[in-house]
Simulated assay, not measured.
Amino acid sequence: MHYWNGLDEVPQELGPTALTIGNFDGVHRGHQEVLRQLVAAAVGYEASAVAISFDPHPLQVHRPQSCPVLLTGVEEKINRLATTGIDALLMLNYDEHLASRTAEEFVAEYLVEALHARVVVVGHDVRFGSGNSGSFETMVELGEKHGFTVLGVEDFGQDRRCSSTWVREALAAGDVADAREVLGRPHAVLGAVVHGEARGRELGFPTANLSSTSEGMIPADGVYAGWLTDERGRRWPAAISVGSNPTFDGYQRVVESHVIDRPDERIEDFDLYGQHVRVEFLQRLRGMVNFDGIPLLIRQMEEDVIRARQVLLGDDPQEHDTPVIPAVES
């Protein structure tokens, strides 16, 4: 997939395109269906499949106080879009200039003049142009005027339409399994591993602590079974704690991943500090609890690791070599 960070990076020799527009926060199954139909349309119209997205999110510019927590950062969004089969992604800087373009100006300047649209594939709820004045009907009218076809995509989902809002609600409730169903993959948070207070190591459960500047919505407080992928693409089973460590009167939420059967003595260069890692949440094991004493906490952590191992590896709790599983994009 080609990545163009602004119109000035779009090649002059670009031929006809099949286009779609969206924020694509999460790149969930609904987005994936739009992009699937985009790729199919591109083949039928002998055009390149191009997605247009925006950074920052428009609400961060217009109404930052009401902008939702984003499911993914730009890096994760690009990586996910690259797996959909599209030919290129154009990331537009959403600023006052772009926000001021009327619906027709946006279509004429970006879709027609810059990208040579032959077909535009969008949902029926699409909004574009200054003040979100443009609708699906507007796009059809402008397509007739400028010579491109508009294909509408129906809502995707059975009992409920797949949406970023649905994923946020699930994560806020700690229901990472429900979020996984909507996303079509486990939800992930990306960030650098930093030094913490070393309590996990002191208790016999060393953890990789994510920086507070990590990207991606953090699920509700609790303990999860999941996976940690390091910079070398090695994927490790992990018991993941999200919360403020109430037993120790903590106040700042942290994401701490304990690699199951930590392979320090068997794997060279396992030190994760400073690495940019990916933490995936597969299943919630329990909520966050304030334990009455360290022994009870340690006993619970032992049980958490056993349950996480069973969820992730499907085996009985026993000493064994933990498999190093190559990272695979889902």
Rank of each mutant, 00 (worst) to 15 (best):
N5L: 03
N5P: 04
N5A: 10
V10W: 08
P11H: 10
Q12L: 14
T17N: 13
T20M: 15
G22D: 06
G22T: 10
N23G: 06
N23T: 10
G26I: 12
H31A: 02
A40G: 05
A40Q: 14
A41C: 06
A49I: 10
V50G: 08
V50N: 07
V50Y: 04
D55S: 11
H57S: 05
P58R: 11
V61Q: 11
V61F: 08
P64S: 13
C67E: 08
P68N: 08
L70I: 11
G73N: 11
V74K: 15
E75F: 14
R80F: 13
R80P: 05
R80S: 14
T83W: 06
G85Y: 12
A88P: 12
L89M: 15
M91N: 14
D95N: 10
H97Q: 15
R101W: 14
R101I: 13
V107I: 12
Y110W: 14
L111G: 07
L111Q: 08
A114E: 14
A114H: 08
H116M: 12
V119N: 01
V121E: 02
V122W: 07
G123K: 04
H124I: 11
D125P: 15
R127V: 09
F128W: 04
S133I: 10
G134S: 05
E137N: 12
M139V: 11
V140N: 00
H146K: 00
H146P: 00
H146I: 02
G152K: 00
V153N: 01
D159I: 13
R160K: 12
R160L: 09
S163G: 03
S163W: 04
S164V: 03
W166I: 11
V167D: 00
V167H: 02
R168S: 00
A170S: 01
A170K: 00
A172W: 04
A179N: 00
V182Y: 03
H187T: 00
A188F: 02
V189T: 00
V189K: 01
L190N: 13
G191N: 09
G191L: 05
A192E: 15
E202K: 11
F205I: 02
T207N: 04
G216P: 06
M217I: 02
M217V: 02
A220M: 04
A220K: 08
V223W: 04
G226Q: 02
W227Q: 03
D230E: 13
D230R: 04
R234Q: 09
A239E: 03
P246I: 14
D249C: 07
Y251G: 10
E256G: 01
S257V: 09
V259E: 03
E265R: 13
E268P: 12
D269V: 15
D271T: 14
L272W: 05
G274K: 11
R278W: 03
R278D: 07
F281I: 01
Q283I: 09
R284I: 01
M288D: 12
F291V: 08
G293D: 02
I294G: 03
P295I: 01
L296R: 12
I298D: 02
E302F: 07
V305P: 03
A308G: 07
A308H: 05
Q310M: 02
V311G: 01
D315W: 09
D316L: 09
P317V: 03
Q318F: 06
E319Q: 12
I325H: 04
A327Y: 07
A327L: 07
V328A: 06
